[in-house]
Structures are given as C-alpha cells and as structure tokens.
C-alpha cells in the first residue's frame, strides 16, 4: 500500500545574498514570498501544506508560476527537505521531474540509455536488453550511437520520450508530461504512459494542460504562492481554478 501524508509542511529555498542580489526585492504577481536574512534570502516555497494521498489517487497539481508545484513534487520525492511539519511517504517513489534532464550531451544515445537504466534501477543483467528496446522505441537508428549533442530537437525529444520505458514505482511523480511532438510516436508514447499509470499506485503530476489533467487525474491540488488553495475532485477544483485565473487576468 502506498501513501503520502503531509501535515503542516513548510519548505523554504535558500539563496546566498550578494551585492547585487537581495537589495531590491519588490513583490511580483507570481512567486513565493522572499524573506531577507542576514546571509541568505529565504524563498518560502510551501507554507503550512497538509494533505493525504492513498492508493488509487491520480492527482494533478495546478497553480501559477512559482506557486510551489515543483517544490511539492520534489518534497514528495525526498529531493528537498521540509523546514517544519511532518512528511510521511510509504512506497517506492519514482520521480521524473524532467525526463530530458540528467542526460549527458557529450555521450551517445546508447551510453545515455545505459546510464539511465543503471540510475533508474533496471536489473543489471537486463540493461543491454532495455537499451536495445529503447533504440527500437526511439526509432533513432544509427543516430542512437552518436552523441546527444548532434541530435536535432526532434531527435532529442524522441530519445527522451523513449526513456518512459524505464520509469517504474508505486508513487509516480512527474513534473512535465510527455507530449509527443512527432505524430508517428503518439501511439507508442500513449501506450507507455498508460502502462506507467496502471502500474503506479499514486500518480502526482504537475501540468498546465487541461487536456492532460482531464485524461489522467481524478483529483487536483491547487497551489498559490506556496499555500494550498484547494484539494479535491478534478471537476470542482479545476473549475474554481479556471474562474480564478480568468478573473485574475
């Protein structure tokens, strides 16, 4: 059984103060509150957030830029720490903040694929098999043996999308949803996405796309400036969020 329980959790980021940074901190229309400390600027990314997720929850996260969506995902993945409150995560977490990140452009597609397999806990005896599978899914042919730096944007996108094959975990966390830019890949990617979601017990997904949210999630977390504005069924929260966004403009 997988579960995520957050009780009154607050998360801050810290930035070292410099001569040019930290002198003029006018508040903008987006982003969390910035507090000026003696040596560091403190960005209050999440404030007093409480929520519980259990098996079967497919949750989308919405909010304006800097509202704390990525921070909430990173907190659940253990990549950032809570300054206060209680965080309880039960289950194997697979976090994909950006599938394209964590790659090395000087390495070939094959080498990057092998490294990704090893980092993402593919059994070592099966790495070669997975790499061949990724080559087939990506459809890159001989480009698979060339450095990523030589790929066009479309090729890179194909390669990144094929990496979905490696993602597994009881709690699936994704900061960007993969949308195939190449129509010939749509079917493969859709199938990989469906398998991923079926396998996972909890899905936590940040997205600005209503289509993606309606297709994949049943609940919505709405964050604004680091605070939880609403959490509930997609029909209720998404409607409120859209009305709020319209009025805000």
């Amino acid at each position: 059984m997988a579960a995520i329980n957050l009780q009154n959790v607050s998360v801050s980021y810290y930035l070292r103060k410099s001569r040019t940074r930290g002198t003029n901190l006018d508040g903008g229309s987006v982003g969390a509150q910035i507090l000026v400390g003696q040596r560091y600027l403190e960005i209050a990314a999440l404030q007093d957030v409480s929520l519980s997720l259990a098996d079967g929850d497919r949750v989308g996260i919405v909010g304006t830029n800097g509202s704390g969506k990525s921070t909430l995902l990173k907190l659940c993945a253990g990549a950032v720490a809570a300054q206060s409150g209680k965080v309880e995560i039960d289950g194997v977490v697979s976090a994909q903040f950006a599938l394209g990140s964590g790659l090395r452009s000087e390495l070939s597609g094959r080498q990057n694929a092998a490294l990704k397999c090893l980092y993402l806990d593919v059994p070592q005896s099966m790495v070669a098999e997975y790499v061949e599978d990724l080559k087939r899914i990506s459809g890159l042919g001989s480009y698979f043996e060339l450095p990523l730096s030589s790929y066009s944007a479309g090729m890179k996108s194909r390669f990144v999308m094929s990496l979905l094959r490696l993602v597994r975990g009881e709690i699936l966390i994704m900061d960007e949803w993969i949308n195939a830019v190449d129509p010939t890949l749509n079917e493969t990617i859709d199938s990989l996405q469906s398998q991923l979601i079926e396998r996972s017990k909890i899905l936590l997904l940040a997205s600005h796309s209503e289509r993606v949210l309606r297709q994949w999630v049943n609940k919505i977390i709405w964050l604004e400036r680091g605070t939880l504005k609403a959490f509930g069924p997609i029909e209720d929260v998404l409607k409120d969020y859209q009305v709020w966004m319209k009025n805000r403009k």
Partner: peptide, 10 residues
C-alpha cells in the same frame, strides 16, 4: 545535485 535528483539519487 540537480543532475543527481533527475537520476533518482539522494
């Protein structure tokens, strides 16, 4: 650390 986070490393 950012590279590590994207590769599931603590």
């Amino acid at each position: 650390y950012d590279f590590a986070v994207h590769n599931n490393l603590t």
